[in-house]
Simulated assay, not measured.
Amino acid sequence: MTTQQVYTSLINGTAGADIAAADRGLLYGDGFFTTVRVVQGQPDLWPLHVERLQTCARAVFGWAALPKSVLTLIEQELSTVTEGHQECGARITLTRGVGGRGYAPPESNADTVTRMVTAFAYPAVYSDWQRHGVKTELAAFYLGSQHPRLAGLKTLNRLEQVMLKQELAQRDTDELIVLDASGAIAEATAGNVFWRQGDTWYTPELAQTGVHGVVRQALLTKYPQIQRVNAQVNALRTADEAFVCNALMGQVSIRSLDGKALPTVRNYKNEAPFTLAGLSPC
C-alpha cells in the first residue's frame, strides 16, 4: 500500500504548525471534514461541500450556521494549498479545538475551532478505475447503526472505515461492498453505491448508517426518481449494472462482485459527469 503524497497543509492558516495534544478532534473525534477534488483551482461540487460543513456544524457544534468568517478562511486556505496543481485532492477538517473537561465540550465559536486544510496528490488509480471499473467483494466487517442526529454525517469518528480499509488491504480486490447490521447494502469502503435493475436505479437509504456523499447528493438532486431502499446484497448481485462514487473518483463501475461479473461496465472517463443510463434529469 502506498502512502498518500501530501503537497501542502495549513493549520489555522499556518504551514508547518502542530496540532495541540489536547485538541478535541484528536482526543474525542470532536469535529468533521470533507474531501474535495480540485481541478485548475476550482473545487468540484463546492456548494454541496459547503452544505455538508454547514450541516455538520449545526449537528456537532450546535451552531446555527458555519460563520461566514470561517468559511471565508477555508476558501482562502483551500486556494493557497491547491495553487499550482492541475488536479489534486484537498481535505478540510474542523475540530472544536482545545478546552472543556473530559467529554464535556467548551462553548465553541469561530475563534476557538481548529481548521486544517490539506492538499494531496490525486490518486492515479482512479483514472484506470473510471475506464475499466472495479472488482469488488463482500466485506466481513459491517457497519453499526448511528444516532439519527449523526447518521450520514462525515464526522471524525471513522474507526469503522479504518477497520474496513484494513480488511481491504488483506483481500485481493479493488473495493469492498459493506452491509449494515441488518444485512442490507450500505456503501463501499469509501464511497456510495448505486445499481440498476431494468429501467430503475437504486441506492441505499442510509437512514441509520453510512455517509451521505456529495456525489450521491448531486445524483439524487438531478434524478429524484432514484429509489432509496434497504436492499439485501442479492439485489446488487443480480443488477444489470452498478457503480461506486465519491467526490474524488466520481463514478466507477462495479465490474464484479465476489467473482460474478455484472453485465454492464461503463467507461465513466468518457461519460458526462453525474450520468445515469436510461434516466433524464427532472
Rank of each mutant, 00 (worst) to 15 (best):
G183K: 07
Q4H: 10
S256N: 14
A239G: 10
R24W: 06
A239M: 05
G100V: 12
N109V: 11
T173W: 01
N157E: 07
R52S: 12
L276P: 00
A121C: 06
V162L: 02
L53T: 09
A20K: 10
G133K: 01
R52V: 12
I11P: 05
G152T: 11
Y122F: 11
V81W: 01
M116R: 07
V81F: 01
Q251L: 06
A57S: 14
T14W: 04
S127M: 04
P43R: 03
I19S: 09
P106G: 03
V252M: 14
G89E: 02
A247M: 04
T8D: 14
T118W: 04
G210D: 04
P106H: 08
S256Q: 14
F194H: 01
L206M: 14
V60E: 05
T136Q: 03
G102N: 15
L66S: 11
A20Y: 13
R237Y: 14
L168I: 01
G97V: 04
L45P: 02
V215W: 06
V233W: 05
N246C: 13
N157C: 08
K260D: 04
G62P: 10
W46Y: 14
F120P: 03
A110I: 08
T275C: 08
N267D: 15
Q161L: 09
L159P: 02
A277L: 05
K269G: 07
L73S: 11
W129C: 03
A181G: 05
V265I: 05
D240I: 04
R131C: 03
D111Y: 00
L73C: 12
L248N: 04
I226P: 04
F120L: 11
L206H: 06
R96Q: 11
A239L: 06
V215Y: 11
I92C: 06
N157W: 01
N157Q: 10
Q40R: 08
V50F: 15
L78V: 12
V38Y: 01
I19F: 12
A59Q: 13
Q197T: 09
A239P: 13
T275G: 02
H147A: 13
H49L: 15
N230V: 03
A119Q: 11
Q208M: 01
V70N: 04
S256V: 13
R37K: 14
L26Q: 13
Y7G: 07
G29P: 09
N12V: 11
F194C: 05
D44S: 15
V134D: 00
D180R: 03
A181L: 12
S108M: 06
I185T: 06
A90L: 11
K154C: 08
H49K: 15
D44E: 15
Q197M: 07
V193Y: 02
G183S: 08
I19L: 15
C282F: 05
G41H: 14
W201M: 07
G278F: 14
T275S: 12
L168F: 02
P204W: 00
R216A: 10
K260H: 10
A64T: 09
N157R: 09
C245L: 13
V162Q: 00
S280D: 10
S280W: 05
E241I: 01
Q232T: 13
L220C: 12
Q76H: 13
R115G: 07
P43N: 07
V229R: 12
T55E: 15
K154E: 04
T3C: 05
